[in-house]
Design a protein around this nucleic acid. Structure first.
Lengths: 234, 234
DNA sequence: GCACTCAATTTGTGTAGACTTGAAATTTTT
DNA sequence: AAAAATTTCAAGTCTACACAAATTGAGTGC
């Protein structure tokens, strides 16, 4: 049998099943028919049903256990998927013209809080880069970044006046592990100056720590413009 | 051939490919071998390779286009996946004892900003619920929520003194669409009182709008305790 | 009543092969 | 040289079947 004219695709099955959940036909905790029965109902193979259900489970709508079967998720522990674009892309997506400006870049001994945060041995040296990302002439993001020299020796020769440290790192170092946090911080005097907000103002902030095979590579603090919100649709 | 003793699983392939990316063997933008060739290399079927690559692409490591082939993502790690647990789960996961307290609940006409935000017809009525979530006796989250009566008529009979509006809604209304935002806001006098922070302090805030088949159901603003950060590892 | 064993059931994952689809590359036409 | 039609290739998806692995539930022995 070919799939030519009238096959049920795994996408159709996903849609139908989702519909039954949303309509209330299959309420939370309901045990649904097993894959074989569904395959008969949709007149396709179990493989196709399996893919549909597997994806729905991954998206948090279903819970599946061998032998126990598949049931509708009761506490839909929903997963939000945020796209974290490069600043340039984010600015351009909003119709702005991206502009980058280096503020400062210098090698120094890692301050204590940073050494503690990244589990560095005391006295390790880092490159501290500060830079601005603009949308047109409007401040969009202030980036405060430290790069561990031991992990990325080439960084001492890097020139951050034209290319941002993030883009440089992405091209240079493959990384294995990332920790990303979002928080609300308050604008200090420096930040207020750069971002054109009043001191003390709440600022949406992202922090990103990157490792390469267990070695800490970089910590970046990114401060967004006033009123910034990170939005996603599920 | 059976998969009995020494088969290459799609997981093995994922691992190997990831390793090659991380080691720098396959740099960003590199065009990798096509599925058939990889199937030969790993001595498995194309189906298995396909699944491995498909998942890696979904995770953001690869970019695939028909005919053009598969290449290593140049801006990897673009998707962060946050699990959004119920407050109760989040508190308990941190070892705290969850406690809920209703602050106020009343039916009212939707204020203009809300009507505009949810595209309500003027004069529509909503139930406005405010409540606190504690970890032990420490304030954890202040929840400010509006529920559209038209979309959920049962809400007028609901009793939110024992069960939180979120848990009530999850049990009552299947929802089809969610918009989730994170932002930094400043604590006003009311919030400062409930959350035990000083007025003007930055507060990490999540806003969540939910629809049921195009009908707006609820808008929730959730204000987190001082110092809260939402963290994920990729 | 309790612990143990074992078979049945259900999802998980693999093989082998074929057709479909979208987009890049090439050729033909204007 | 530019535009349009055609070919070709790689990913996308389906069929059909098989064995693997986890867990449940029933049966057995004490």
């Amino acid at each position: 049998m070919t799939q030519s004219t009238e096959t049920t695709s795994y996408k159709d099955i996903k849609q139908t099943v989702l519909g039954r959940i949303r309509s209330g036909e299959w309420r939370p905790d309901t045990l649904m028919p097993n894959e074989e029965d569904l395959a008969v109902e949709f007149s396709c193979t179990r493989t196709t049903v399996n893919r549909a259900l597997r994806e729905l489970a991954e998206e948090g709508f279903l819970e599946r256990r061998r032998k126990a079967g598949t049931r509708v998720s009761s506490a839909p522990q929903r997963q939000a998927r945020f796209t974290i674009p490069l600043v340039r892309d984010e600015v351009e997506a909003m119709g702005g013209t991206y502009r980058y400006a280096l503020v400062s870049a210098q090698a120094e001994t890692a301050p204590e809080w940073l050494a503690a945060r990244l589990a560095l041995t005391p006295g390790q040296r880092v490159v501290h880069v500060r830079c601005m990302h603009y949308s047109g002439n409007t401040p969009f993001q202030f980036e405060d970044r430290w790069i561990v020299i031991n992990s990325v020796p080439q960084v001492e020769q890097a020139d951050f006046s034209a290319i941002g440290p993030n883009e440089w790192l992405v091209q240079t170092v493959p990384f294995t592990n990332v920790e990303l946090s979002f928080l609300a911080s308050r604008a200090d005097a420096t930040l207020a100056g750069f971002m054109d907000v009043t001191e003390g103002e709440p600022v949406f902030t992202a922090e990103r720590i990157t490792w390469l095979q267990g070695q800490p590579v970089t910590l970046a603090k990114m401060y967004f413009a006033a009123g910034y919100r990170m939005t996603t649709r599920l």
